[in-house]
Computed example of a mutant assay.
Amino acid sequence: MATNCCSPVTFVQICDNDFCFEVAETDVEEDAYKRSKDCFITLIQCKENRFLLLNDDRTFEGQHLTATQQCQSDCKFNIQMYRDTNLAKRQGKPVMLYVNEESQKKVVCCTEQHGIYPEEMDIPDKIKEDAHKALFLLISKSPRSTNQYMMESLWYKDYFLALQPDKDNPSLNKLVLCHKPRDEVDESCHFMLK
């Protein structure tokens, strides 16, 4: 639970050489993620000028887009910010990524096999778990960069969203979870928000 390390107590009595105190009710919050009012819509650009999209096969992939296509709303992602009530300092901001499709939200989620898939869900107002399959840390690539980021899974430490060629079809780039130490450079994990 998040506290400031102080609980208001009141002395009640001495009973059999014991000091008895009463702890007052406090508004202590459980560790959680709370949905912020901050949500923005953006194109997510990957290396080789590919843009992240949810395709008709229900997979997230990187595709080349014309300037006209980049203006279409179905090419853009919503990035919902969350406030972290955990006192532990984390590098980055907790976020959920999703697309709106036919009035449904398709959220980027991790599988138990370290994969990525779209799941239809309502964006939760509060997440009580310390880690969630749809939460990622949006980490600035460098302090001087204003639009270049990496996205680390909160479910799997040291696993980042990456765009990599599909093993079965090398011309297709799919969104995957890539294991890497934070200090290791891997350009497949770098994204620009436009």
Rank of each mutant, 00 (worst) to 15 (best):
C5E: 12
S7G: 09
S7K: 14
S7A: 14
P8Q: 15
T10S: 11
V12H: 04
V12N: 11
I14V: 14
D18Y: 03
D18H: 10
D18N: 14
F21C: 09
E22C: 05
A24Y: 02
V28D: 15
E29A: 13
E30Q: 08
S36N: 14
K37L: 12
C39L: 10
I41D: 05
E48Q: 14
E48M: 13
N49D: 15
R50C: 02
L54V: 00
D57S: 14
F60R: 01
E61S: 05
E61K: 11
G62P: 08
G62W: 05
G62C: 06
Q70Y: 09
Q72G: 06
D74G: 08
C75W: 02
F77S: 00
F77I: 08
I79T: 02
Q80Y: 02
M81T: 07
R83F: 02
R83V: 03
N86W: 00
N86H: 11
L87T: 09
K89Q: 06
R90E: 13
Q91F: 05
P94Q: 04
M96S: 14
M96R: 12
Y98C: 01
N100C: 03
E101T: 08
K106R: 11
V107Y: 01
C110H: 08
T111E: 04
Q113N: 11
Q113V: 04
I116S: 08
I116P: 06
I116A: 02
M121A: 15
I123F: 07
D125M: 10
K126D: 06
K126Q: 14
K128G: 11
E129M: 12
K133N: 09
A134V: 00
S140D: 05
S142N: 09
S145D: 11
N147L: 10
Q148C: 13
M150D: 01
M151V: 01
E152T: 07
S153T: 03
W155F: 12
Y156M: 01
K157Y: 03
K157W: 01
D158Q: 08
F160L: 10
L163D: 05
L163S: 12
L163N: 02
Q164G: 01
Q164D: 10
P165F: 08
S171P: 00
K174A: 04
L175I: 00
V176R: 02
C178S: 11
C178A: 06
H179I: 08
H179Q: 15
H179M: 10
K180H: 01
D186G: 05
S188Q: 01
F191N: 00
M192K: 08
M192A: 14
M192S: 09
L193F: 10
